[in-house]
Nucleic acid binder design. Structure first.
Lengths: 204, 204, 204, 204
DNA sequence: CATGAATGAGTGTTCATTCAT
DNA sequence: CATGAATGAACACTCATTCAT
């Protein structure tokens, strides 16, 4: 009985995760049965349990995957000349362009995190990782003179974090609003009053 | 003639709602059975269904109740001399003082809102009501000269909404942080750079 | 505490029975809740139980009432010059004119009779009473020379009973057929071959 | 690959149907819980729902099965030299020999048919199928000269159908009568007056 | 006599999970 | 490795009946 080759195992895991995400987004975590995920993934229940030990493990897996995705997205921010612009773009992507169903998943994950320490851990770690990276990037940019902080740097960063999460949150509960315009408006204000960029930015 | 008097009916409804809130906060919406709520409320299933027609009606009732609570809380903000201070205090109350379990309920409600139009409607209405009231209060204060906006008023208000929700969100997913300090820091920045108050404020 | 006057008691009972019949016919015995009957009758559950001790008692009451109704209907047959014609008319009335829902009730009653001896007893008694009456009427008519039996009288009567019940049955399970025509056809055959009438009958 | 083979699936279905029939006959359709059927069949609820999607599907399955049974029974009638004799025998079998509980099921099915179109459809189809077959058989026999109709053929056939159903009905509500004798008596009359057979029949 | 709020056992059905093949 | 039939505890909800007022 040769163990599943790590590559194949990972490929399968990802395929199942994608099926699960589609199903969860469509019907919610509790509205989706394991059978439904199996159907979506084209496998049998027995096989699913070969790759994930339980239903919550799928949520955990989804979190984990999102963590990687955000990490990749942040890479672009890190190396961008216009850091605020890159953050703005990233926010617009997740708040306006990605389908609403995907955003809605955050409720399911959040709810699960209250009950499941594994999920909570991943959530906190993802947030901490993300925050640290953004913070470092901004601090470095300020040190480099690419950004100028108008006020206590720590406070500006704290405000930035809350702002980003708040925008995501509002886009999720009020998708009918013109969130893209709201984001643009807020970032203009940010640049004017709190964190101006010294590099040329292409105003879109 | 033991007809349920309106008062008694309302008292009962509230008692059941409180029991449901405790149970939901403890075990989640889907993790809580109607039987468990009955046990918590000290009534039988049949009786519960006399007051609420379904499980989601309990969530809807909880939303409705929160809406009233927020409305009352906002009354204090409206009449406050120091509007930003009142908002800050309100935020600290809900983000730091109220028990974490209560905040966590927002995930359950949000998740339910994705599936249940009634819940979604209440959520949107509550947000719209709250937003409009805060907005009016700020606009009036600016017109009165009690607040001075450093930048486009609309943008500042948009930022304020996102900020408020973001702070609540972050307090919910990162309760271990010193959120009170973060809020204070952010509000100080706000007052300095975006929305200064012309009345004496007692800096806490 | 004066006992309900017998008259008032009976009036009430009949009103409730009618409400129950409407509800049973609409939704079936098991599909009708006591609450629904109360609503239909405009009384409270407590009051209903003052007049009928249980739900099956309502079915029993309905049987009892039907027994009286049939007895009355038979009175017309007894005194009719054209006995076969009167039976035919009665059959057409119950099989074609009365609403289908009322006929459908017989299934509910029959099912209940299998479980409830009281209901079974009433059902058997009603059938026995009816059969005896028809039988006597026919025997008397034959003795009087108003009817002529072409064959063993006992066999003809047995066939008549089965025929009547069978027509009712078929009208109930196949209401879409032209049961009136079928009845007319059968009775014509009856008169021609088995039980001719010596009085003028208006052939319809 | 423990995929349910079609044979095994059908065997299981029949076993469950038999368990359901026993339970329904004992306690009635509404008096029988799915748990009770499971107990009777020696399986778990989950398994039952693997074979039948709902409780009414069991009734529908029972109808379907009866339809097949009747079809088979009719095959014997079709090829019989003495058609009336074969029908008489069949009637005696179902009205007198089969256990009363099985006959009683017709009430449950009939009641269900009033509420459930699927059941109603099967009931009507079964009756139509049966009627058409009997009718064809008789018409052919008359054409062949094996039967002689004393009267309008259509009327005789209509009477025959009503008679058959009426006999079944009466045997169900009055099982204490000597229904075998009644059937014999009626069929003798039939042969004498309405539909004589030209082949030798062994009078039982 | 009449009420209707309260009851709680019971319902049909689902679904995460297991394990023999 | 993969299967999918089997499981059975759990669920939201109903309703015939009672009894304090």
């Amino acid at each position: 009985m040769p163990k599943l080759s790590p590559l194949r195992l990972e490929t399968r895991r990802q395929a199942i995760l994608e099926a699960a995400e589609r199903a969860f987004a469509r019907d919610g975590f509790h509205g989706t049965s394991m059978q439904a995920i199996c159907r979506e993934a084209g496998i049998s229940p027995g096989t699913l349990y070969l790759y994930f030990p339980s239903k919550v493990a799928l949520i955990a897996g989804l979190c984990e995957r999102d963590r990687h995705e955000i990490r990749d997205a942040l890479t672009h921010v890190e190396v961008a000349a216009d850091i605020l612009g890159a953050l703005e773009e990233m926010l617009i992507h997740y708040a306006c362009i990605e389908p609403q169903e995907r955003r809605a998943l955050i409720f399911e994950i959040g709810a699960e995190a209250q009950r499941n320490p594994d999920v909570a851990k991943i959530m906190v770690e993802t947030d901490a990782f993300f925050s640290a990276l953004v913070r470092d990037t901004i601090l470095k940019a300020i040190a480099d003179g690419r950004l100028i902080a108008h006020g206590t740097v720590e406070a500006i960063i704290a405000l930035l974090f809350a702002l980003g999460d708040g925008i995501m949150w509002r886009a999720t509960i009020r998708p009918e609003l013109d969130n893209r315009a709201i984001i643009t408006q807020i970032f203009k204000l940010l640049r004017d009053k709190l964190l101006s960029s010294t590099v040329d930015t292409n105003v879109s």
